[in-house]
Design a protein around this nucleic acid. Structure first.
Lengths: 331, 331
DNA sequence: CTGAAAGCGCTTACAG
DNA sequence: CTGAAAGCGCTTACAG
């Protein structure tokens, strides 16, 4: 492994610059008092020798690894979950900005996996996503004193440090758009689920309908393809609404398929809005009007929050990130 | 940071088991000669104390970090690229099987980023994907003596250790299906591109057509939405074929849209096959018949290949992984 | 402002 | 079969 034999060490840098290794360390970490001339000389040598401090050695004394674990819950792998890649991209970018590397791990929700990572000395903390209502991962990290931040919330009494989107705003905006374009019989199609976000998205719809003095109609369905298809069939049957606000793009896609079977033209005879800006919705004809979230931005905020927690646990409240309604052909 | 103060060390394990730290190390690494009774006693203590060796300390002597970098090229973030999540999932799982962690990094193709990772002592090697014809990343890793393995191939004269899918087989199979179901005027729609796989997918089509004694018709287009739309328009204009083999699902989706505009019914009046099993194709009506690759399996093979390279660079040839034709509604 | 010493937790030779 | 010693490359705390 030549790469390792050729490794430049702090000692070589110190010798070449004519200073002690301690001064080199100070220059790198921006600590202690180092004269300007010395600093420049050392920096020059570091760059010339392509010196990179050994993270393993560094972590032994500093208790910092410069690594962040992102345990991906199983549902983030489901093809219907679209947020993963964009979020990960943002996470890696934001982490890099602060000199952090992202270690990707699998997580089936078993807190023991989290505990082992806490004990491993491999990471400085976690970024969690896809939390379940009874998720034990955050509690485990908290108990073992490992900093973390979450995209999304869990039960209010559990430890968390969250950034989340404003779900109700999204469906409120979508519903309002439909009302403003003349629709009156507007239904909501959502999931029966234990998740916060499902309830919040429904509430946004209800709130906009109430404000306009319109009668609301909420349909909820299970999460299997069959459940969704059945709900779509019923909703587009006799007495169908002229517009439907969906709690997710996946539901909207099912409505497109059902509308196709019935010869109902989406965008003309039936308006549909989604939520998530899933790639599938973008490729439908007409393209789906949907509520989009800036996952890149969110990832940056989650990393910021993680760094805050790393500096010292806080009771800081969570942070809501605004959503954006993308108007396309379907509404 | 309680997690770190509470850290169990090899010394604590050694004391509790009544052996030297060296023996504990031997038990963990399965090295040296350790008596059966001693091994069991030590293993019990390790498990009781939840001992995990400190990877930083370990890496200083062993030159092994147990970490693998996966630099994600920018195109893997494009929404039209579907392989990323599935592959990463498989990569993390396969790496974990061998005690490896995956460090995700961004890569804009700049070899200096790769060089810095090589020098960092943070990783034992790379898994590359999305290679460009003039990709300098593998060469850089090779020059710095860092082991790596690739999903996909690059120019034959460059260092590489690859696993790839059998592209020609896929389009050959798709074309043969169309021939077997009675089609005679079958066109191919592909990308003008410098990539291996585009040429190979075209060749599979040509080969199947030649075997059946049919006349082939190849249409190629650029990579922008506009280019693709123009190609679809032309292909579905006057004298259109009865079936089209596409080099990617993205192209197939564009054909669906164009067919929709012209009132041509896909699956009845026009057969279409894709390549990639993109989530969008699965959600079209009718669902797209396409060539699918088992990315989970491929990731496992790439990790195997990486471990081979880690044990000592080889000139072992690359490995082809079979593809599978998924027959759905469109053909 | 700079440096000599201690020590982080391991693994690698090597001695017995 | 097992252990005492050396040392991996850093950072910390402290002395000057």
């Amino acid at each position: 492994m030549p790469a390792r034999d050729q490794r430049t060490t702090i000692t070589q840098v110190a010798n070449a610059a004519g200073v002690s290794i301690q001064t080199v360390s100070n220059v790198i970490r921006g600590r202690g008092r180092v004269g300007e001339a010395t600093r420049e000389r050392v920096a020059k040598v570091i760059s010339e020798l392509n010196y990179v401090p050994h993270p393993g050695a560094s972590s032994m004394r500093s208790n910092r690894t410069g690594q962040l674990a992102h345990p991906m819950p199983p549902q983030s792998f489901e093809p219907t979950n679209n947020i993963n890649v964009e979020f990960i991209r943002g996470l890696v970018a934001a982490a890099a900005t602060h000199g952090y590397h992202v270690v990707l791990t699998r997580s089936d929700g078993d807190p023991e996996e989290i505990a082992e990572l806490c004990r491993s000395g491999r990471i400085d903390g976690f970024v969690f996503t896809g939390m379940q209502p009874d998720d034990l991962r955050m509690e485990t990290a908290h108990r073992l004193g490992m900093p973390f931040a979450c995209f999304g919330r869990t039960a209010p009494d559990l430890p968390q440090a969250w950034v989340d989107i404003h779900n109700a705003d999204g469906t409120d905006e979508a519903t309002t758009l439909l009302i403003d374009t003349g629709h009156r019989r507007i239904a909501f199609l959502g999931h029966e689920s234990p998740y916060f976000w499902d309830a919040e998205r429904r509430d946004g719809y209800l709130q906009a309908m109430a404000r306009a003095g319109l009668q609301s109609r909420v349909a909820l369905c299970g999460s299997t393809d069959k459940d969704i298809e059945a709900a779509a069939r019923k909703l587009l049957g006799r007495g169908r609404p002229s517009a439907i606000v969906c709690s997710s793009d996946r539901l909207a896609v099912a409505l497109y398929a059902e509308a196709g079977r019935r010869g109902i033209e989406v965008g003309k005879e039936l308006a549909i809005t989604g939520f998530d800006d899933w790639i599938v919705g973008r490729n439908l004809s007409p393209a789906l009007t949907t509520v989009s979230t800036d996952l890149h931005d969110i990832a940056g905020r989650v990393v910021d929050r993680f760094l805050t927690e790393l500096a010292g646990p806080t009771d800081a409240p969570g942070e809501f990130v605004p959503v954006e309604l993308l108007r396309r052909g379907s509404a």
